[in-house]
């Protein structure tokens, strides 16, 4: 009769326990920090949900009529930015991964990454002082000639500080993150798929359409969602470019623009006091929930993709 050899256990030294303990502690700290963020936000925003609406700035009917235009503006601006950024980002990613000369590709990618290194406050300054005045004549033209389209209904903004300008700045800001993720995914396309397509006589574009894009589709979706999350939470660029009003409108070129949650906080926070602070924190909580949902969906798409990625 044989017995299985006793499993040899590594000797546990005190230093081992300490090191392992501190690593676990650091990991646990992440849990604590995130829980703390949620708890503090909720605790500080409860007063805003139960307060008499008359005390909120602008005396709306209820807290929700105060938040409504802000939520709309946040989602609308981010969606516009996304519509502009995704096609260009996919194009850039394809250019860097499949079109640019091999030797140049890496430095070209670095150029796009440079956009991500520019601080948001600089984008705000540029958007407000340079881009808005420069693009105003275009809005003038759009409203005069295409004013029958509801999106460009007159009157035109005289300063160019409209939600469309904001969306352009936001699009530039989220371009690098979407590009970087798409590029990674496109580079992972199995080489055999690409070569098979080319061997069957496909042109380069046909190869991309039948081998690269289907492989990268979920990657593009999740990159877009992450970009959306970034655009939803962007504060300074919006605060410094937009001339806000508490309205819900789809018009892109007027001087009456819906503000966003984040920029509303940044603009009103320095003067807020008492219940006003709680109201702003409550809007921050709502923003947190929205971005949390968007990011979770993005991660879910990424993780689902892991199961069937690779050369299969």
């Amino acid at each position: 009769m044989t017995t299985a050899p006793a499993r040899i256990r590594a000797k546990q030294r005190p230093a081992d326990r300490i090191f392992r303990g501190s690593a676990t502690l650091a990991g646990g700290l992440i849990l604590i920090i995130l829980a703390a963020v949620a708890i503090f936000l909720i605790a500080q925003s409860i007063p805003a949900f139960v307060v008499d609406p008359a005390e909120i700035k602008g005396s709306p009917d209820s807290f929700w009529t105060f938040v409504g235009p802000l939520v709309f503006g946040t989602v609308w601006a981010a969606a516009l930015a996304l519509v502009m950024a995704v096609p260009i980002a996919v194009g850039i990613a394809l250019f860097i991964s499949h079109y640019a000369p091999r030797r140049l590709a890496q430095s070209l990618g670095y150029v796009v990454d440079l956009l991500a290194a520019v601080p948001s406050v600089v984008f705000g300054l540029w958007g407000g002082r340079v881009l808005a005045p420069a693009i105003q004549p275009l809005y003038d033209w759009l409203v005069t000639h295409l004013g029958w389209i509801p999106l460009f209904a007159p009157p035109v903004s005289g300063t160019g500080r409209t939600i469309l300008t904001v969306a352009i700045v936001l699009a530039v800001m989220i371009l690098p993150i979407i590009t970087a993720l798409c590029r990674e995914v496109f580079l992972q396309t199995p080489l055999l798929h690409e070569e098979a397509a080319l061997a069957l006589g496909a042109t380069r574009w046909e190869m991309i359409r039948i081998a690269v894009l289907p492989f990268g589709r979920s990657g593009i979706v999740s990159a877009a969602m992450l970009g959306l999350g970034r655009a939803l939470g962007e504060t300074m660029a919006v605060a410094m470019v937009l001339s806000p009003a508490a309205v819900i409108t789809f018009v892109l070129t007027s001087s009456q623009n819906p503000s966003t949650i984040a920029s509303n906080i940044a603009l009103n926070y320095p003067e807020a006091h008492g219940i006003g602070v709680n109201v702003l924190i409550a809007t921050g909580l709502i923003l947190f929930v929205i971005t949390f949902l968007v990011n979770s969906i993005a991660r879910w798409v990424v993780n689902r993709r892991k199961d069937f990625s690779g050369a299969n």
């Binding site: 939470g233 984040a262 971005t291």
Partner: peptide, 18 residues
Amino acid sequence: DVMTGIPSIVAGLATYAL
């Protein structure tokens, strides 16, 4: 992953609350 997506202004507000 969730923390990566926290908007910067929300991080500021939470710290303020703390």
